[in-house]
Design a protein around this nucleic acid. Structure first.
Lengths: 220, 220
DNA sequence: CTACGAGAGATTGCATGCAATTTCAAGCCC
DNA sequence: GGGCTTGAAATTGCATGCAATCTCTCGTAG
């Protein structure tokens, strides 16, 4: 719902928040960067009030954290935090699949298969950027189909934190075909209409990422 | 009747937030109440800046929601929202049990059994208030043992939203013995050290509450 | 050359001013 | 008597003033 489209009608604080968030997610503001109110205010061309509010929101959402007497600092999501995030995400993504399996129509399944086909093509072509984008859209679509607003909100929050961490750690292009395979398994499970199967498929997908993460951690 | 709550050395905004949150959770500010900035500021004896910040935080945490051109309104957590909340909680509480089962020491198990004994005694005596308190402490202890800060934060958020809804809907004293039984099952599972069993126990406990909720909804 | 201290600058947190907008209600016209 | 208009009070969102505090650098003493 909140894409980059309507940036005009909201207040300054809202736009400041979105701009700041984008800057952080694009790594324009690297982890460790101090987000002082006057600094952010000037950067975004607003006064201190909306800047302060934007920073507060960023901090609430875990994209920055407060250091006493130092203000907000862009979060450096380390491996341990990433494990925490993926543990929670594993449970929630499983839930999303379970809920989605109950509400999906055959048309919805077709829609996911479309996405899947595009995704497979992109991976076949080695297009990492498109892979990343379609992977996001796949999960976004599933949580949308789940129809649970709190779940959606949480998963989106986790997604952003992961995206922030992606820069710190490494993106794993090696897992692209694996992702497609697992996504297909998820769609198959969703189509079957079996909630247990669907949940298992969703969970194991994220669980695999978590294990990869732990493995990479042990190596590096 | 101003601020008799715990006054830490935190800032005014922090205290304002805690005071306001307590007022909402104690139903001193009923669902539907408008939280206008000047009103809250006067109520808490602070200026508009910390009041505004407190309201923003309350809103962010789902205890109030924004109505355009009306400001924040204390959330009226209806049955549909409660279902959403319990669906998420079911998954997360299961995760908490799973994680806890891996990190718990025998002493931790003993601690939970102590809690359980007190709880059982309170229920035996028909002490609803103590039941409620010990039920909370039981779950709080488990998520603490799980050792995942994001999970803890989320569960606490959900807990508060549920508590807010408790006033709107009904508290079910009939489920007290059931709760003790299920908690015992959870402790047994945790003690066994089997993550799968532990997760299932935690999930089914919340799942039962969710089903009770749905049943009550169909009746009322 | 190193350790330390003082001062300058910057930042946070809170208070308050101000304009645009909205809500609410009383009064008027039909 | 009822519906509509108008006006006043209130609210939000943003800008800014201000004091206390902290950081960080640079100069100085040992």
């Amino acid at each position: 719902m909140t894409t980059e489209t309507s940036n005009q009608e909201r207040g300054l604080a809202e736009r400041a928040y979105l701009t700041l968030r984008a800057a952080i997610l694009e790594h324009e503001l690297a982890p460790g960067t101090r987000l002082s109110v006057p600094n952010v205010a000037e950067r975004l061309g607003v006064s201190r009030s909306p800047a302060r509010e934007a920073i507060a929101r960023i901090t609430y959402e875990g994209l920055a954290h407060f250091e006493p007497n130092k203000g907000a600092v862009v979060a450096d999501v380390d491996a341990a935090s990433l494990v925490e995030i993926y543990e929670v995400r594993e449970a929630l993504e499983g839930l999303a699949c379970r809920l989605a399996s109950r509400r999906m129509s055959p048309q919805d399944v077709d829609g996911l298969r479309d996405l899947l086909a595009q995704h497979a093509a992109a991976v076949e072509a080695g297009d990492v950027e498109t892979h990343y984008k379609l992977d996001m859209r796949f999960h976004a679509r599933i949580r949308e189909l789940a129809g649970n607003t709190r779940l959606t909100t949480q998963l989106e929050l986790l997604q952003r934190q992961i995206r922030l961490a992606m820069y710190t750690t490494h993106r794993s292009p090696g897992g692209m075909p694996q992702a497609v395979t697992e996504h297909r398994r998820i769609v198959d499970a969703l189509e079957s209409g079996d909630p247990v199967l669907a949940e298992a498929a969703g969970r194991s997908h994220i669980g695999r990422l978590l294990r990869d993460l732990s493995a990479a951690e042990r190596v590096g």
